[in-house]
Simulated scan of single mutants.
Amino acid sequence: MPDSKQLRTEEFIAYDLQLITGSKYKGLLKVAANAMSVIPWVGSVIAAGNTIHSEKEQGKINQLLQEWLYTHKVKMDSLYQDLSSLTECINKIESDLTSRIDSEEYLSLVRKSFRSWDQAETKEKRKYIINLITNAATTSICQDDQVRLFNEWIDKYHEIHFLVIRAVVNTNGINRRDIWLSFSDNIPREDSSDADLFKLVMRDLSTGGVIRQTRKKNFQGQFIKENTRQRTSSNTLESAFERTKAYELTELGQEFVHYTMNEVIVRLG
């Protein structure tokens, strides 16, 4: 096995925690501890590191265990980097966040978020989770119940859902055809699996309250009814990629994007 994978125990236990321990908030150590406490393999990695260290001293080596340990070191590095990113962002906020990050309400969000972080299939999802839990500490735009909902959305939705959300962001309305073309080069057949998948994703996001068809509103914020009766001579059903209806983020969807896909939001009072 290559020397690069012959890892010392210290590489798993003695991480450079200078950024966290040197933070202006002592409570961030508690945040990191709560995050690591809900990731089941962290303790196993440390125990395995001790085992390998003992085997090396005895002139023996368990190569399978060492390979497993190396794989988890990569995950441990990613965990440490994301914890450091969270710490760095919180340290940049000028407001005093001591009471917030020390509170059990926030720590419960940390535990929920890092359970999701451990199960996330992609690096992008892990980034959304770190943005979410960072913004949950640094801004008061959303209540904690909404933060939990946003966490569940990250768990539930797949990358294609997020591609659709990103296509809708910062538009005054975008039709289904243009949404599809924002991440694909051609329009598939109506009876294709791609068309079925796209309809499913649009339905998920619409019924989930993330996006909706663009609607007119009055000055009181009430949605205005529109005449939906349209005469058509066509004998085919509406296309999955039709171009007559525009879509936008709901207000809740906009807050979800702010909390998960943007950098840290400026703290409000």
Rank of each mutant, 00 (worst) to 15 (best):
R212N: 02
T139R: 05
A48D: 07
G49E: 00
I93Y: 01
W41P: 08
E159H: 10
V147I: 15
I130P: 00
T260L: 08
M261C: 02
K127W: 00
V164M: 02
L132M: 14
G173L: 09
R215W: 02
C89H: 13
M36E: 15
K125D: 08
L107G: 13
E238P: 01
A137N: 05
N62F: 09
H72E: 06
V169T: 13
D204H: 15
V266I: 04
T134Y: 03
D102Y: 15
D204M: 12
K75E: 12
M36Y: 10
T260K: 07
N34G: 03
A14Q: 10
F256N: 04
K26G: 03
S4H: 12
H72Y: 12
S4G: 05
D16E: 13
D185E: 08
N172G: 11
N186H: 14
I93T: 12
G209A: 11
V110F: 04
F114Y: 10
L197G: 05
I13T: 10
S234N: 08
S99K: 14
D82N: 15
R215V: 11
K73P: 02
G208E: 11
V147S: 01
L17N: 14
Y259V: 09
A14P: 00
W153F: 13
E94Q: 13
D3H: 14
D3Y: 15
T122W: 01
W117H: 04
K217W: 11
L29D: 01
E121T: 08
Y70P: 05
E159L: 13
S44G: 06
